[in-house]
Computed example of a mutant assay.
Amino acid sequence: MKTIFIIGDDKVGRQAAAELNVPDAIWLNRSVGSKRVWRLIRSGAIKLPDVLAIALADIRRPNLAAPVLPIIQSNADVLELIKAEVPDRIICYRAGLVLTRRVLDQPVQFLNVHCADLPKYGGLGTLHRALRDKAFAQNACLHEITTVIDGGRVLHKEPYHLSPTRSFRLNEDVAYAAGRKILNDIASGHITP
């Protein structure tokens, strides 16, 4: 089964890409920019204080050099990838690209790794919501991608625990480590969705 990983080109995504031992199967996603973040704040999809906390955590996170990998920036790029590579499945991690119906109608299994428990903590700003709710027992989830963001059937959960005494960044690191474990388990064949 041919698997392609589409991973967000940020510090967290680059760490995941560096750990995956399948460099020929990784594409970096660069579809998210500051304009999109501001649109998400204005629409209420994420709160400004949450964005600021996420940004501060990211500033404090070590920066790995971006691996030299092919780039995905749009749904058209995903369609070209499918045409060229003919994968059986595409797995996204921090990709930030909302796949269109046209892409999802392709004969490919589309999966996503979301680093908070689904369905309750889907979307953006999920770790802030979980911490505010004192929902410390969490799961990174491998789920099917549908037209509803984080709405697809969950296929695997990797448990982890948030802590109210840990900094937000360290809580994020724990959540992202659980997500990377799912990616690595797929790449090594330990998880077969």
Results as ranks from 00 to 15, higher is better:
Met1Thr: 13
Met1Pro: 10
Lys2Val: 07
Lys2Tyr: 00
Ile6Met: 09
Asp9Asn: 15
Arg14Val: 09
Arg14Pro: 04
Gln15His: 07
Ala16Leu: 07
Ala18Met: 10
Asn21Cys: 09
Pro23Gly: 12
Pro23Asn: 13
Ala25Cys: 13
Trp27His: 14
Trp27Asn: 02
Asn29Phe: 10
Arg30Met: 06
Arg30Asp: 07
Ser31Pro: 01
Ser31His: 05
Val32Thr: 13
Val32Asn: 11
Ser34Phe: 07
Lys35Asn: 12
Lys35Met: 10
Val37Gly: 03
Leu40Pro: 01
Ile41Lys: 03
Ile41Asn: 04
Ser43Tyr: 01
Leu48His: 02
Pro49Leu: 02
Asp50Val: 12
Leu52Gly: 02
Ala53Phe: 01
Ala53Ser: 05
Ala55Val: 12
Ala57Met: 10
Asn63Pro: 02
Asn63Cys: 08
Ala66Val: 14
Ala66Thr: 15
Pro67Asp: 03
Pro67Leu: 02
Pro67Glu: 07
Val68Lys: 15
Val68Ile: 13
Leu69Glu: 08
Ile71Phe: 12
Gln73Arg: 14
Gln73Leu: 04
Gln73Tyr: 02
Gln73Thr: 15
Asn75Ile: 09
Asn75Lys: 05
Asn75Thr: 04
Asp77His: 14
Glu80Lys: 14
Glu80Trp: 12
Ile82Ala: 14
Ala84Arg: 15
Val86Ile: 06
Pro87Arg: 10
Asp88Ser: 08
Ile90Asn: 07
Ile91Ala: 03
Cys92Ile: 08
Arg94Cys: 08
Ala95Tyr: 07
Gly96Asp: 09
Leu97Ser: 05
Leu97Gln: 06
Val98Trp: 04
Leu99His: 05
Leu99Cys: 08
Leu99Gly: 10
Thr100Val: 12
Thr100Tyr: 04
Leu104Trp: 05
Leu104Lys: 02
Asp105Glu: 14
Val108Thr: 08
Asn112Gly: 06
Asn112Ser: 06
Asp117Tyr: 06
Asp117Met: 05
Leu118Phe: 02
Leu118Lys: 03
Lys120Arg: 13
Gly122Gln: 06
Thr126Gln: 07
Leu127Tyr: 02
His128Asp: 11
Arg129Trp: 12
Leu131Ile: 15
Asp133Cys: 01
Lys134His: 09
Lys134Cys: 12
Lys134Tyr: 05
Phe136Thr: 00
Phe136Ser: 00
Gln138Pro: 13
Gln138Ala: 08
Asn139Gly: 00
Ala140Trp: 02
Glu144Cys: 06
Ile145Leu: 09
Ile145Asp: 00
Ile145Phe: 08
Thr147Phe: 00
Val148Met: 09
Ile149Arg: 04
Ile149Phe: 10
Gly152Cys: 01
Val154Met: 01
Lys157Met: 14
Pro159Tyr: 02
Thr165Tyr: 04
Ser167Trp: 00
Phe168Ile: 04
Arg169Pro: 00
Leu170Trp: 01
Glu172Trp: 08
Val174Pro: 00
Val174Trp: 01
Val174Tyr: 03
Ala178His: 09
Arg180Cys: 11
Lys181Val: 15
Ile182Ser: 10
Leu183Met: 09
Asn184Lys: 15
Asn184Ser: 15
Ala187Asp: 10
Ala187Phe: 12
Ser188Glu: 12
Gly189Leu: 06
His190Ile: 03
His190Phe: 04
Ile191Leu: 11
Thr192Glu: 11
